[in-house]
Computed example of a mutant assay.
Amino acid sequence: MILSVEPDIEVVGEAADGAQALEQVRALRPDVVLMDVQMPVMDGIEATRRIVADDLARVLVLTTFDDDAYVDDALRAGASGFLLKNSDADRLVDAVRTVAAGHALLAPEVTRRVIERMVAGEASSAEPTTPLVEPVETRVSTGSTAGLTPREQEVLVLVGKGLSNAEIAGELFLGEATVKTHVSNVLAKLHLRDRVQAVVFYHRSVRPSA
């Protein structure tokens, strides 16, 4: 009901489980899939993995605070974004538009949990673990932000905190199209693949130590 009333969004199908979702995605070829995690027959992680592997659609995963392990798995499966199930209508609509435009999105609350797990994993030397995201290129370092303009540095900080383009636009009193340009420039200059890598880069290399 939330999405169908938006003039630029069309809900083309619904599915009760991951297997059914995969079938519908192959038949309907939507731009974005809103994916639950815990479902019968095939869970959302496996469905996401297959959808992304076949380049069928971008996937926005709905998660809860208790789904940390699923968030890790969904990142590896190639999900483009994560949204909390209790998000309000405006955030849901903005998330769908953001992912449809080719951008990655992490809800601020999910961002914090992902980073906490990433840092905890790096601190543990018990056994090697698979990283939550692919490592950024070695040429990216703490000094690399010197190539960013002051405005791009502000945008990087807000991306690192998990804000969407619309939220960044509100914070900096800019147009959303301008924010998208700044985000694209940040990713290009830092040789980062997407916003997920930008979040990780920010927390590893930019965020002031507590």
Rank of each mutant, 00 (worst) to 15 (best):
E127K: 15
E152P: 04
L62I: 04
T181H: 14
E137L: 05
R204W: 11
D43C: 08
V200W: 08
A188F: 03
K189A: 05
A15K: 03
V12P: 10
E154P: 01
V155P: 03
P7R: 06
A15G: 04
V110S: 02
P208E: 12
A15W: 00
T129Q: 12
P135S: 01
R207D: 06
L156H: 00
E23K: 09
V179T: 01
N185M: 13
D67G: 03
P150I: 02
M1R: 15
G160N: 01
E109Q: 15
S205E: 15
T64S: 14
N185V: 14
D72Q: 12
V96W: 06
L34W: 06
T130L: 15
R195A: 11
A166D: 09
I2Q: 15
H203D: 09
D72Y: 02
K189F: 08
I2N: 15
A126M: 13
S80D: 09
A107M: 13
K189V: 05
V99I: 01
L75K: 11
L132C: 12
I51A: 02
D31S: 03
R139K: 14
V159Q: 05
V99L: 10
L3D: 00
G160A: 09
L148C: 06
V119D: 13
T145K: 11
V59D: 01
F65K: 13
A198I: 07
E14Y: 14
R29P: 05
T178V: 07
D66F: 10
E23M: 12
G18P: 06
E23T: 06
L105M: 13
R26S: 07
G175C: 00
R29Q: 05
I2G: 12
S184Q: 03
N165S: 13
V179G: 09
E171Y: 07
E122M: 14
L22C: 02
L172R: 02
L158Q: 10
D36S: 13
P131N: 13
S4W: 11
S184I: 03
L28P: 08
P128E: 09
P208V: 08
D43R: 01
G13Q: 00
F201Q: 08
A77V: 01
L60P: 12
T64N: 14
A27P: 10
H182D: 11
